[in-house]
Amino acid sequence: MCTNYNATPRDRLPSIVSAMRPPKPDWDWPHEIYNDYAAPIIRLGEDGPEVILASYAMVPKQHIPPGVKKFSTMNARAETIGEKRSYSKQWRDGQLCLVPMESFYEPCYETGVAVRWNIGMADDAPFAVAGLWRSWNEPDGSTAHSFTQITVNADEHPLMKRFHKPGDEKRSLVIVPESEYEDWLECHDPERARSYLQLYPAELMAARPAPAPPRKKKAEPNGVLF
Protein backbone atom coordinates (compact mmCIF):
# COMPACT_ATOMS: atom_id res chain seq x y z
CA MET A 1 0.00 0.00 0.00
CA CYS A 2 1.10 3.57 -0.56
CA THR A 3 1.97 5.39 2.67
CA ASN A 4 3.59 8.53 1.29
CA TYR A 5 3.72 10.49 -1.94
CA ASN A 6 4.88 13.76 -3.48
CA ALA A 7 2.02 16.24 -3.76
CA THR A 8 1.59 18.38 -6.85
CA PRO A 9 2.69 21.99 -6.25
CA ARG A 10 0.22 24.81 -6.71
CA ASP A 11 1.47 25.84 -10.17
CA ARG A 12 1.14 22.30 -11.59
CA LEU A 13 -2.35 21.39 -10.39
CA PRO A 14 -4.65 19.97 -13.10
CA SER A 15 -6.29 22.48 -15.43
CA ILE A 16 -9.68 21.11 -14.34
CA VAL A 17 -9.56 23.50 -11.36
CA SER A 18 -8.02 26.55 -13.00
CA ALA A 19 -11.36 28.01 -14.07
CA MET A 20 -13.25 26.86 -10.99
CA ARG A 21 -12.08 27.20 -7.40
CA PRO A 22 -8.29 27.01 -7.13
CA PRO A 23 -6.59 26.72 -3.71
CA LYS A 24 -6.67 29.81 -1.51
CA PRO A 25 -3.53 31.97 -1.71
CA ASP A 26 -2.65 31.32 1.94
CA TRP A 27 -2.92 27.52 1.64
CA ASP A 28 0.36 25.64 1.72
CA TRP A 29 1.32 21.98 1.90
CA PRO A 30 4.58 20.00 2.14
CA HIS A 31 6.03 18.28 -0.90
CA GLU A 32 6.16 14.80 0.64
CA ILE A 33 2.87 13.73 2.24
CA TYR A 34 2.52 11.23 5.09
CA ASN A 35 -0.32 10.04 7.35
CA ASP A 36 -2.31 12.98 8.77
CA TYR A 37 -0.48 15.59 6.64
CA ALA A 38 -2.66 18.22 4.98
CA ALA A 39 -2.65 17.95 1.19
CA PRO A 40 -4.74 19.22 -1.74
CA ILE A 41 -7.52 17.09 -3.16
CA ILE A 42 -10.02 17.87 -5.92
CA ARG A 43 -13.70 17.21 -5.32
CA LEU A 44 -16.96 18.25 -6.96
CA GLY A 45 -18.27 21.44 -5.32
CA GLU A 46 -21.54 23.27 -5.85
CA ASP A 47 -20.13 25.14 -8.86
CA GLY A 48 -17.85 22.45 -10.26
CA PRO A 49 -14.46 20.95 -9.37
CA GLU A 50 -12.70 22.64 -6.46
CA VAL A 51 -9.51 22.21 -4.48
CA ILE A 52 -9.67 21.74 -0.71
CA LEU A 53 -7.05 20.85 1.88
CA ALA A 54 -7.65 17.51 3.57
CA SER A 55 -5.81 15.21 5.95
CA TYR A 56 -4.23 12.08 4.45
CA ALA A 57 -6.03 9.03 5.93
CA MET A 58 -9.80 8.71 6.00
CA VAL A 59 -9.86 8.46 9.79
CA PRO A 60 -7.32 10.90 11.27
CA LYS A 61 -5.47 9.63 14.32
CA GLN A 62 -7.18 12.16 16.58
CA HIS A 63 -10.56 10.72 15.59
CA ILE A 64 -9.72 7.14 16.53
CA PRO A 65 -11.57 6.56 19.85
CA PRO A 66 -9.48 6.16 23.01
CA GLY A 67 -8.69 2.53 23.71
CA VAL A 68 -9.05 1.51 20.08
CA LYS A 69 -5.87 0.16 18.50
CA LYS A 70 -4.50 2.53 15.87
CA PHE A 71 -5.40 1.47 12.34
CA SER A 72 -4.49 2.78 8.90
CA THR A 73 -7.00 4.28 6.46
CA MET A 74 -4.55 5.81 4.00
CA ASN A 75 -5.56 3.25 1.37
CA ALA A 76 -9.00 1.76 0.68
CA ARG A 77 -9.19 -1.57 -1.13
CA ALA A 78 -11.52 -1.37 -4.15
CA GLU A 79 -12.85 -4.85 -3.39
CA THR A 80 -14.18 -3.90 0.08
CA ILE A 81 -14.63 -0.13 -0.11
CA GLY A 82 -18.41 -0.49 -0.05
CA GLU A 83 -18.34 -2.74 3.02
CA LYS A 84 -15.77 -1.28 5.41
CA ARG A 85 -17.18 1.05 8.02
CA SER A 86 -14.44 3.64 7.43
CA TYR A 87 -15.45 4.12 3.77
CA SER A 88 -18.86 2.63 2.97
CA LYS A 89 -21.09 5.65 3.63
CA GLN A 90 -18.91 8.03 1.61
CA TRP A 91 -18.65 5.46 -1.19
CA ARG A 92 -22.44 5.12 -1.36
CA ASP A 93 -22.83 8.91 -1.26
CA GLY A 94 -20.44 9.39 -4.18
CA GLN A 95 -17.88 11.47 -2.26
CA LEU A 96 -15.20 10.80 -4.83
CA CYS A 97 -12.08 12.90 -5.24
CA LEU A 98 -8.84 13.15 -7.14
CA VAL A 99 -5.53 13.20 -5.29
CA PRO A 100 -3.01 15.19 -7.36
CA MET A 101 0.59 14.05 -7.11
CA GLU A 102 3.89 13.91 -8.93
CA SER A 103 4.97 10.47 -7.71
CA PHE A 104 4.48 7.96 -4.92
CA TYR A 105 6.72 5.53 -3.07
CA GLU A 106 6.69 1.75 -2.66
CA PRO A 107 9.26 -0.76 -1.29
CA CYS A 108 11.05 -3.08 -3.72
CA TYR A 109 12.64 -6.29 -2.39
CA GLU A 110 14.40 -7.45 -5.55
CA THR A 111 17.84 -6.97 -3.93
CA GLY A 112 16.82 -9.02 -0.90
CA VAL A 113 16.13 -6.00 1.29
CA ALA A 114 13.52 -3.25 1.13
CA VAL A 115 14.59 -0.36 -1.11
CA ARG A 116 12.30 2.63 -1.48
CA TRP A 117 11.35 3.32 -5.11
CA ASN A 118 9.75 6.40 -6.62
CA ILE A 119 6.92 5.74 -9.10
CA GLY A 120 5.36 8.22 -11.50
CA MET A 121 4.72 9.01 -15.13
CA ALA A 122 7.23 8.19 -17.84
CA ASP A 123 7.21 11.84 -18.95
CA ASP A 124 7.40 13.15 -15.34
CA ALA A 125 3.99 14.83 -15.74
CA PRO A 126 1.82 15.32 -12.66
CA PHE A 127 -1.17 12.99 -12.36
CA ALA A 128 -4.07 12.21 -10.04
CA VAL A 129 -5.29 9.07 -8.34
CA ALA A 130 -8.79 8.04 -7.35
CA GLY A 131 -9.78 8.83 -3.79
CA LEU A 132 -12.64 9.21 -1.35
CA TRP A 133 -13.20 12.13 1.05
CA ARG A 134 -15.25 12.92 4.12
CA SER A 135 -15.93 15.77 6.59
CA TRP A 136 -15.37 15.93 10.34
CA ASN A 137 -16.96 18.21 12.94
CA GLU A 138 -14.13 19.37 15.16
CA PRO A 139 -14.44 20.21 18.89
CA ASP A 140 -13.86 23.92 18.17
CA GLY A 141 -16.90 24.01 15.86
CA SER A 142 -14.91 24.00 12.62
CA THR A 143 -15.22 21.50 9.78
CA ALA A 144 -12.21 19.51 8.64
CA HIS A 145 -11.76 17.08 5.76
CA SER A 146 -9.85 13.87 5.22
CA PHE A 147 -9.26 11.48 2.33
CA THR A 148 -8.07 8.03 1.35
CA GLN A 149 -6.58 6.65 -1.86
CA ILE A 150 -8.18 3.69 -3.62
CA THR A 151 -6.08 0.62 -4.52
CA VAL A 152 -6.60 -2.40 -6.77
CA ASN A 153 -4.88 -5.76 -7.16
CA ALA A 154 -1.67 -5.56 -9.21
CA ASP A 155 -0.42 -9.16 -9.16
CA GLU A 156 -0.24 -9.18 -12.98
CA HIS A 157 0.80 -5.58 -13.60
CA PRO A 158 4.25 -5.50 -15.29
CA LEU A 159 5.50 -2.67 -13.07
CA MET A 160 3.49 -2.66 -9.85
CA LYS A 161 3.94 -6.39 -9.25
CA ARG A 162 7.59 -5.65 -8.45
CA PHE A 163 6.76 -3.97 -5.15
CA HIS A 164 5.97 -5.09 -1.60
CA LYS A 165 7.27 -8.13 0.24
CA PRO A 166 7.70 -11.43 -1.62
CA GLY A 167 4.58 -13.51 -1.18
CA ASP A 168 2.39 -10.51 -0.33
CA GLU A 169 -0.46 -9.47 -2.58
CA LYS A 170 0.60 -6.71 -4.96
CA ARG A 171 -1.48 -3.51 -4.91
CA SER A 172 -1.52 -0.30 -6.92
CA LEU A 173 -3.06 3.12 -6.59
CA VAL A 174 -5.71 3.84 -9.23
CA ILE A 175 -4.28 6.46 -11.58
CA VAL A 176 -7.16 8.25 -13.32
CA PRO A 177 -6.57 9.28 -16.96
CA GLU A 178 -6.92 13.05 -17.36
CA SER A 179 -9.71 12.54 -19.89
CA GLU A 180 -11.80 10.92 -17.13
CA TYR A 181 -11.27 13.47 -14.34
CA GLU A 182 -14.69 15.11 -14.64
CA ASP A 183 -16.55 11.85 -15.22
CA TRP A 184 -15.00 10.37 -12.08
CA LEU A 185 -15.83 13.38 -9.92
CA GLU A 186 -19.42 13.52 -11.18
CA CYS A 187 -20.10 9.80 -10.73
CA HIS A 188 -22.65 9.13 -7.98
CA ASP A 189 -23.42 5.51 -8.84
CA PRO A 190 -21.15 3.17 -6.80
CA GLU A 191 -21.43 0.40 -9.37
CA ARG A 192 -20.49 2.68 -12.25
CA ALA A 193 -17.69 4.16 -10.16
CA ARG A 194 -16.10 0.71 -10.00
CA SER A 195 -15.61 0.80 -13.77
CA TYR A 196 -13.00 3.54 -13.26
CA LEU A 197 -10.93 1.47 -10.83
CA GLN A 198 -8.44 0.10 -13.34
CA LEU A 199 -4.68 -0.39 -13.48
CA TYR A 200 -2.78 2.24 -15.43
CA PRO A 201 -0.70 1.12 -18.47
CA ALA A 202 2.80 0.19 -17.33
CA GLU A 203 4.38 1.63 -20.48
CA LEU A 204 3.19 5.11 -19.47
CA MET A 205 4.80 4.82 -16.03
CA ALA A 206 8.37 4.91 -14.74
CA ALA A 207 10.04 3.86 -11.50
CA ARG A 208 13.48 4.24 -9.98
CA PRO A 209 15.23 3.61 -6.66
CA ALA A 210 14.86 6.56 -4.29
CA PRO A 211 16.26 5.65 -0.86
CA ALA A 212 14.98 7.86 1.92
CA PRO A 213 17.53 10.43 3.15
CA PRO A 214 19.19 9.64 6.50
CA ARG A 215 17.20 10.80 9.47
CA LYS A 216 18.61 13.82 11.23
CA LYS A 217 20.06 13.07 14.63
CA LYS A 218 18.37 14.74 17.54
CA ALA A 219 20.31 16.57 20.21
CA GLU A 220 19.70 16.25 23.92
CA PRO A 221 19.61 19.43 26.05
CA ASN A 222 23.32 18.94 26.84
CA GLY A 223 24.13 18.97 23.13
CA VAL A 224 24.91 15.25 22.83
CA LEU A 225 23.57 13.65 19.66
CA PHE A 226 21.52 10.47 19.92
Rank of each mutant, 00 (worst) to 15 (best):
T151D: 00
A219L: 14
F147C: 02
T8N: 01
T8S: 12
A206Y: 05
A207N: 09
R10P: 10
A154T: 05
D11A: 15
T151H: 00
Q90N: 13
Y200V: 04
P221S: 13
L53F: 05
I150F: 01
K89S: 14
V113G: 00
E220P: 06
A144N: 02
E138C: 07
L197A: 07
Q90A: 15
M101Q: 07
K218L: 15
A154V: 05
Q95K: 11
D183R: 03
N6R: 14
V129I: 10
A7C: 06
I81K: 06
M20F: 11
I175S: 02
M101F: 03
S142E: 11
G167K: 05
D183F: 00
R134P: 02
P9V: 12
I16W: 00
D124A: 11
T151G: 01
L173K: 02
A206K: 07
I16L: 09
P60D: 03
H157C: 10
I33N: 03
N118M: 10
A128T: 06
P158E: 01
T111I: 07
G141T: 05
E191G: 00
A38F: 11
A210Q: 08
L13W: 02
A154G: 04
P166N: 05
A212P: 03
K161N: 13
D155A: 13
K70E: 15
D36Y: 05
S18R: 13
F127C: 04
G120W: 01
K69L: 14
Q62M: 13
L96E: 05
S142G: 11
A128V: 01
I119E: 06
R116G: 06
G94Y: 03
S86Y: 07
K61Q: 15
K161D: 09
L132V: 04
V17F: 03
Y105W: 08
S86F: 04
M121L: 13
G120V: 08
A122Y: 00
L159S: 08
D11T: 15
A38Y: 10
S72N: 15
Y196T: 01
